[in-house]
Amino acid sequence: MSDHEYARVHVPDVESTPNPTREKKEVDEAVGASRFGFNVYTADPGERLPWGYHRHPDHEELFYVLAGELRVQTADGTEHLNAEDAFFVPENAPVSAEAVGDRPARVVAVGAPKDADDAIIEEECPVCGEVTGRTHDVAGDEYVLYCESCGAEVTRFD
């Protein structure tokens, strides 16, 4: 008998968590991982993952496209990722990803350290024009993002 605590899950059985994509499976939470994040997204064309143009001050990310296509916006420009492409995002580097093409994108997102995954969203508010973060609220089955500067609703995800 081992002293280790192994864990196994069947990813399709992991409950999807609220987010702006069709589906987000927090596999790290399902298996009890404590040092890295591991999420599997299914995003329909036009859906962003995760929330928008953001950065993690002390957290690295890696996106791996299993199927479909992603457009990734960075401070250095735009990258187009296809199935089997991986894209590394260093800590504190701004990034936004969106599913593009004619079919859903399936993407694995890995990040570490897990306890430093706080995201800072910095996007221009369409109402006041300020480049600010977002606050959020849950309205039924929808997540609503508001501008931190003026309080205007800027995005609604169902």
Rank of each mutant, 00 (worst) to 15 (best):
M1N: 07
S2I: 00
D3L: 14
H4N: 13
E5H: 09
E5A: 12
A7H: 13
V9G: 08
V9M: 09
V9T: 13
V9R: 09
V9W: 06
H10S: 05
H10P: 02
V11T: 15
P12E: 08
D13R: 10
V14C: 11
E15N: 13
T17R: 14
T17E: 12
T17K: 12
N19S: 15
P20T: 06
P20S: 07
E23C: 11
K25S: 11
E26F: 08
E26G: 06
V27T: 14
V27P: 11
V27R: 10
G32M: 01
G32R: 04
G32W: 01
G32P: 03
A33D: 08
S34V: 12
S34T: 15
R35H: 13
F36A: 15
G37A: 11
G37V: 08
F38D: 03
N39C: 09
D44S: 14
P45E: 00
P45V: 10
G46E: 10
R48G: 10
L49Y: 14
P50I: 11
W51S: 03
W51G: 03
G52D: 05
Y53F: 08
R55M: 05
H56Q: 10
P57K: 01
P57M: 03
D58S: 09
H59K: 09
L62S: 07
F63C: 06
F63M: 13
F63N: 11
V65M: 08
V65K: 07
L66N: 10
L66R: 14
G68V: 08
E69L: 02
E69Y: 00
E69M: 00
R71Y: 01
Q73A: 13
A75G: 05
N82S: 13
A83Q: 00
D85W: 08
A86L: 11
A86N: 05
F87L: 03
V89I: 14
E91W: 01
A93S: 12
V95R: 10
S96Y: 02
S96P: 03
A97V: 12
A97C: 09
A97G: 08
E98S: 07
E98N: 06
V100W: 00
G101A: 02
G101I: 04
D102G: 14
D102P: 07
R103M: 04
P104Y: 07
R106W: 01
R106C: 09
G111H: 04
A112E: 07
P113Y: 07
K114V: 05
K114I: 04
K114W: 14
D115N: 09
A116L: 05
A116D: 14
D117E: 08
A119K: 06
I120A: 08
I121Y: 06
E123F: 02
E124N: 10
P126W: 09
V127E: 12
V131A: 04
T132I: 00
R134H: 15
T135S: 15
H136Q: 07
D137R: 11
A139Y: 03
A139L: 07
G140W: 00
G140R: 01
G140S: 04
D141C: 05
V144L: 03
V144G: 05
Y146H: 15
C147R: 01
C147N: 08
E148Q: 14
E148W: 08
E148R: 14
S149A: 13
C150P: 10
G151E: 13
G151L: 13
A152T: 03
E153G: 06
E153C: 05
R156L: 02
R156Y: 03
F157A: 10
F157P: 04
